[in-house]
Structures are given as C-alpha cells and as structure tokens.
C-alpha cells in the first residue's frame, strides 16, 4: 500500500449491527474512494465471519471528538456527584435487567 494511496482515499469509520434490534457498533476503519466502496470494503474486511447484518459507514472527518487533553474538566466533576445516579429508588421485584 503506497502512501499516495492513503492520501487519495479518505478514511471511513465502520459500524456494524450484529442482529436486528441491536444498535450499530463501531468496529474499525478503512480507506475507500467513496461511500459505496467503503460499504463494499467493509463487507469484505469486517463481515467475513457472520459478524453482522447491517453496515453503516461515515467519513472519519465528519466525526467530531472530545479533546483527550480536556478529559479532567470534562469528566472528573461527575465523580463525586453520586446524587446524579437514581440509586435511591426502590425497584419492584418484577423489574429485572436494570
């Protein structure tokens, strides 16, 4: 794979739904010339072992990510605010999987 090729072909993120009713999960990324090719490449690269029945792809540049260096201000303040978890409700016994 030449580096030119990588420059020409944008990166796509691939999401696969393993079963009807479940959600699409991120499985990895790949290079492709356009979205159609990305779907086909994803079929060959990520669903060879019956991993799923639906594929989504999105060009990586359209994903906006949180800043890893801002992790502390972003996530730490939640740590000592246990009242945000609704742990004080009493659940009826019939309710499982909560």
């Amino acid at each position: 794979m030449s580096s030119d090729m990588n420059k020409d072909w944008p990166l796509y993120e691939v999401f696969i739904r393993s079963k009807n009713g479940l959600d699409h999960k991120h499985v990895g990324s790949l290079h492709a010339a356009d979205a159609t090719m990305a779907i086909e490449n994803a079929r060959d690269v990520y669903t060879r072992r019956m991993e799923g029945n639906s594929i989504w792809v999105v060009e990586s540049k359209y994903i906006t990510a949180s800043d890893p260096s801002a992790q502390d201000p972003f996530f730490d303040p939640a740590e000592d605010k246990i009242y945000r978890h609704p742990t004080f409700y009493e659940l009826p016994e019939e309710l499982t999987h909560m």
């Binding site: 794979m1 072909w9 492709a32 060959d44 690269v45």
Partner: peptide, 12 residues
C-alpha cells in the same frame, strides 16, 4: 493487492 481492502476482497 493494490490496497489492503481489495487484497482481502480478492482473497475472499
């Protein structure tokens, strides 16, 4: 293969 994705496609 010319790129890894097509290498896998052709091997499949």
């Amino acid at each position: 293969g010319p790129v890894i994705e097509q290498d896998i496609a052709m091997t499949n």
